[in-house]
């Protein structure tokens, strides 16, 4: 069925208000959209790696989740949820369960790119019927904005502070989506919440209902860590996709498909200028760093276009 925003509003809300995420946080927006993609009659078991989302949505004695939720540790959301899926299959085989349950793990970039990478890789390799969703806000926000392997080059964080000696994080961002593609699983996608949410909703639906393991990497702005004016979240996402810093694409059984090609590819300055974490790049002596970032974005974008069979 074709995507219709109005129709999706009639689905049950599976994440309640009253959780303690910051005002204007991108993560619950992503989670709500992914959960709306579930069929209303299906049950879900959700697990989360340590991170803002986990500690703020499940603060004893309150839970914002309408579905079963497992409060996991930093390094093992993939293992926990894949184990629950294996148990479900065993009970189903024994005829003790007759309903359908879907399995979803959420992790931030810290719990996915860094600490939980081994358990994520294991869960995907073992072929469990589950979805791992990474809400990528590009640093360890829960503990106070420390750099992760997902933090973009030159971003100012508390462990890569921009100053006279070091101009922010010295390394480029790791491309986790490509690592997941290399697992040769049935479905891998990179998405972002933008426009009418068609992209994220449809990818979540495919990820959840494709048999076997699936991975979604979702761009998730953090107003506190990225230092932008809170209401501007969707302007930031639009700039990220229009500058090709965060390309939207999916890989179905190894076949690449580009989901969004900006009509006019914007220079990375537009995106960098929108956030305080990159402010130091616009000092006269640092302008060459903007140029360096532009070259790297172009290199990765052109490579992706080739993989997707598109030409510039």
């Amino acid at each position: 069925m074709a995507y219709n925003l109005k129709a999706t509003t009639e689905k049950p809300e599976r994440l309640t208000g009253g959780h303690r995420m910051c005002a204007g946080c991108g993560a619950p927006i992503v989670v709500r959209t992914v959960l709306r993609a579930l069929k209303p009659e299906d049950h879900a078991v959700i697990g989360s790696a340590t991170g803002c989302l986990e500690v703020s949505t499940c603060l004893y004695p309150y839970t914002a989740w309408k579905d079963s939720f497992i409060h996991s540790a930093f390094e093992n959301a993939g293992a926990t949820v894949s184990g629950a899926e294996a148990a479900y299959n065993a009970l189903k085989r024994a005829g003790k369960i007759d309903h359908t349950t879907k399995f979803i793990a959420f992790g931030g970039d810290g719990g996915t790119y860094d600490i939980g990478l081994q358990s994520l890789s294991g869960a995907m390799e073992r072929g469990h019927d589950m979805v791992y969703v990474c809400y990528d806000n590009e640093a360890y926000m829960n503990t106070g904005i420390q750099r992760s392997s997902s933090t973009p080059k030159y971003a100012d964080t508390t462990t890569s502070p921009a100053g006279k000696a070091v101009p922010g994080k010295p390394q480029f961002k790791k491309d986790l989506t490509q690592i997941m593609v290399a697992h040769n699983i049935p479905y891998v996608a990179q998405s972002a919440p933008f426009k009418n949410f068609k992209d994220l909703y449809e990818k979540a639906e495919k990820a959840i209902y494709t048999p076997g393991p699936a991975f979604l990497n979702v761009f998730t702005p953090c107003p506190r860590g990225w230092r932008y004016n809170t209401p501007d979240l969707f302007d930031i996402v639009q700039l990220a996709v229009d500058t090709c810093i965060w390309p939207l694409y999916e890989v179905i059984n190894g076949e690449y498909k580009l989901s969004y090609k900006p009509k006019q590819k914007l220079p990375v300055e537009a995106y960098l200028k929108s956030q305080g974490r990159f402010r130091h790049l616009f000092a006269k002596e640092n302008m060459h760093m903007v140029e360096e970032l532009q070259q790297e974005v172009d290199r990765r974008w052109n490579h992706l276009l080739k993989l997707c069979g598109e030409t510039e």
Binding site: G18, A23, P61, T63, A64, H71
Partner: peptide, 22 residues
């Protein structure tokens, strides 16, 4: 406290009012 810190109600965060943060 419930054994294992289990929360037996689903979606009860709705009872917690975050509106006073505004």
């Amino acid at each position: 406290v419930t054994p294992g810190g289990v929360i037996t109600e689903s979606g009860n965060a709705g009872d917690f009012r975050t509106g006073d943060w505004r």
